[in-house]
């Protein structure tokens, strides 16, 4: 957590704020495209899972009861986290929620040696992929509550 006695330079604050907003933008757009596509479902993605936890992801895909719940949680989770990050509202919750989703994505498609996926990747990854990088970027954000400086959380703190 940010020590109240620590000071952020303007550049530091700007960098952290931009990081928060762009990650928010990414989450929001991923969520919105899924919401706007009536045919979207996580089935293909879940079925494509490989590695230690693939059994878990396959069982989600195979359950006609759970699947719509997973789909809705994913779509609305992405949208709400995205909006929250951009607005700096409930920033901490949004960050933890986002990190949870990213961890789920990472373990469904881990870039481990010997695992290949139906969807070709746009880059080259070994153990570390962009999902992990976004995950750690969010960890950094969680340590600097920029929402309390620029964002709705500021009002929440002030009006408590």
């Amino acid at each position: 957590m940010l020590n109240p006695n620590q000071k952020l330079s303007n550049a530091q604050l700007a960098a952290l704020l931009i990081l928060r907003v762009v990650i928010g933008w990414h989450f929001l757009y991923e969520g919105i495209t899924k919401l706007l596509n009536p045919n979207w479902t996580s089935v293909g993605y879940l079925m494509d899972s490989k590695g230690f936890f693939s059994g878990f992801y396959h069982s989600l895909a195979a359950s006609p009861k759970l699947l719509p719940v997973i789909d809705a949680l994913n779509e609305w989770g992405l949208v709400l986290i995205g909006v929250a990050l951009i607005m700096g509202l409930f920033t901490h919750w949004a960050i933890y929620g986002g990190m949870l989703l990213l961890a789920m994505y990472y373990f469904s498609h881990p870039p481990f040696i010997g695992l290949t996926y139906a969807l070709p990747s746009e880059g080259s990854y070994l153990f570390i992929d962009k999902v992990v990088i976004e995950f750690f970027a969010m960890w950094v954000l969680s340590l600097f509550p920029t929402g309390k400086i620029i964002g709705f959380d500021r009002l929440l703190v002030k009006t408590k």
Binding site: T41, V43, G44, Y45, M47, D48, P64, L67, L119
Partner: peptide
Amino acid sequence: FAGRGLLYTY
């Protein structure tokens, strides 16, 4: 996904 039979199977 569809090309690999992964979609809409279930």
